[in-house]
Structures are given as C-alpha cells and as structure tokens.
C-alpha cells in the first residue's frame, strides 16, 4: 500500500489524479477501522493531514447562495464544530456532539462522513435539513464542482464524487431559524445511529428542512413531510402568529417522516422500530424547534 503525503492542496489534487483509487484519510476514524478489520485494502492512502486549510472554516457570502454561509473545511473536527459553530450551524453542532466518543470527535470530520457516505453518518441528516443550497466543494485538477447536498448521496456508501475528486469544503448557509438533531442508539454514548433525524426551520423562505439517517440506503430528506408542514405553517399564518402547530399536524408530520424512510431489519434494530422512532423524533424535534421559534418571535416583539 502506498502512503501519499501531499504538503499542499494542489499536490493533493495531483496525487488524486495520478492515483484515482487512493483513499483520502484525515482523522482516520472510519478509514482505520476498515483497514484494521481488514475489510478494505486500498492501493494507496492519501493523507490530508498536512494541509492545514482543511481544518479551517470561514464565514462569508458566496455566489449562488443566499445570505451568510459557513465554508467548513473538510477536516474541521466535530469537537470544534460543536464548540465554535453552535450558533451558526446548530443542527450540525448537535449532530457532531453525538459522534462516537470525545476522542473520535476530536479527529472525525464532515469531510470524512461525506467521503464514506454511510447512511449512518451523523452529519448527513443535519446537512440535508440545513437547506437545499448546502453545497459540497468537490475539486480535481480539472476544476471545482459544487454538488448540491441533495445530489451528493447516490447509493449505499456511494457518493457522486468522481474518482479524481477530493472534498475541499462544505458550504452551509448560516441557520436562519432553530435546528435540531436526534439520534437513536442502544446505549447512552458511543453508538452508531440505529436511526437519526435532523430538522431545520427556515423562516426566511418559509420552508422546513429534514434529514433521515440510517433508515434508507442513503441519507434522505422527508420531502412530503417538509412540504406538508411548510404548507400548514403558511396556510395558518403560523410563521407570523407563532401559535401552536397543534397535535394533529405534528402527528401527521411524524407519519410522513416515517413514510419517507425505507429501513431494514439488522443487528442494530428492526425496521418497525426505526419507523416508530423516526415518528417520535420527528414529532419531538418539530415541537422543540417550533417552541424555540415562537420564543424568539416573542422576545423580538
């Protein structure tokens, strides 16, 4: 196995172009587990740890995206996201806080989750919920491609990267409303998601974002649930009034989230449990975000 250690981003792109089968490694929290279990023997590892820009984030305005955006380096560890970006990216910060153990959170990153594209990756539901203009910066010697998050996950542990592309950063709009993330595990820490759910309210454009983890071949949104609840909020003027959503609509939202999932029975849980738990998490997180939203309305008034 070759071990490639580029010193700069350009060297990394050149190395990836020359060795398209090289597996990028940064924190190694996924890659090394696969290697140690002898499940995967890549021809080469492409070590990105010398490229410091990958562990930086910046905020600003970017073409094609509305409002303020966080450009999150692919290797910014979850511990820092939770610590530094809980106001800007609250859903991702909550999701990051559920990843593995403190040690894993110090090394694991969103770039790794995206590269692995496992349906159980904790970042995915938060990214999907954060809005349709979350963009993955995929780069190769041929240039930069901005992949909308909705088009990024294409199959079980498969993403839409080309073989010569690397993930440089993710551009995520700064939250314009409350966000939440919930995850089921069969113990109280250090678990891979049995299923997970992310939600984000977007009062600016009157939409609601969702993301489902570990309950389908890929991370996915619950589109009908999003449209249903956005419709309810708009029709009933709730964005303006901040009144209660009401149990019937919350119940329906949960059902539609469940309907969007296509879980399987496996060693971590049954499909029936996953469906059930998604509905509960959907109802609870919608309630939490809505309560937070109405409180912010009241305190702004």
């Amino acid at each position: 196995m070759e071990f490639l250690r580029p010193a700069t981003w350009d060297e990394a792109l050149a190395a990836k172009a020359e060795h398209p089968s090289a597996l990028p490694i940064s924190g190694g929290t996924d890659v090394m587990v696969e290697l140690n279990f002898d499940r995967h023997r890549p021809s080469a590892l492409l070590d990105l740890n010398r490229i410091s820009e990958l562990t930086a984030w910046e905020s600003g305005r970017f073409e094609g995206q509305e409002g303020e955006v966080i450009r999150l380096g692919a290797a910014v560890p979850y511990a820092r996201i939770t610590r530094e970006l809980s106001r800007e990216l609250p859903g991702l910060a909550l999701a990051g806080n559920t990843v593995g153990s403190p040690q894993i959170r110090n090394r694991g990153s969103v770039g790794g989750n995206l590269g692995g594209a496992s349906p159980a990756g904790d970042a995915h539901p938060a990214l999907l919920a954060a809005g349709r203009d979350v963009l993955v910066e995929a780069e190769s010697v041929r240039g930069t491609r901005l992949i909308p998050i909705d088009e990024f996950y294409v199959g079980v542990k498969r993403n839409s990267l080309e073989p010569d592309e690397l993930i440089r950063a993710v551009r995520i709009p700064v939250a314009d409303g409350p966000q939440q993330f919930s995850k089921i595990g069969t113990r109280n820490a250090m678990v891979i998601a049995v299923c997970a759910f992310g939600i984000a309210l977007h009062p600016k454009n009157g939409t609601v974002g969702t993301g489902i983890g570990s309950a389908a071949p890929t991370p996915r949104r619950a589109v009908e649930a999003e449209e249903f609840i956005a419709g309810e909020l708009a029709e009933r003027g709730l964005w303006e009034s901040g009144a209660l959503i009401g149990p019937a609509a919350i119940q329906r939202f949960g059902e539609l989230v469940t309907a969007a999932a296509s879980p399987i029975d496996d060693v971590r849980g049954t499909a029936a449990y996953r469906r059930h738990a998604l509905a509960v998490m959907a109802r609870r997180t919608l309630t939490w975000t809505w309560n937070e939203y109405t409180q912010s309305l009241r305190s702004a008034a």
């Binding site: 909550l94 919930s182 109280n188 939490w288």
Partner: peptide, 9 residues
C-alpha cells in the same frame, strides 16, 4: 435516556 443523542427533553 439517550443522553447526548438528544432524543428527549
């Protein structure tokens, strides 16, 4: 129950 997985408030 659920702890940091944030399943219940």
């Amino acid at each position: 129950p659920g702890a940091l997985s944030n399943t219940s408030h």
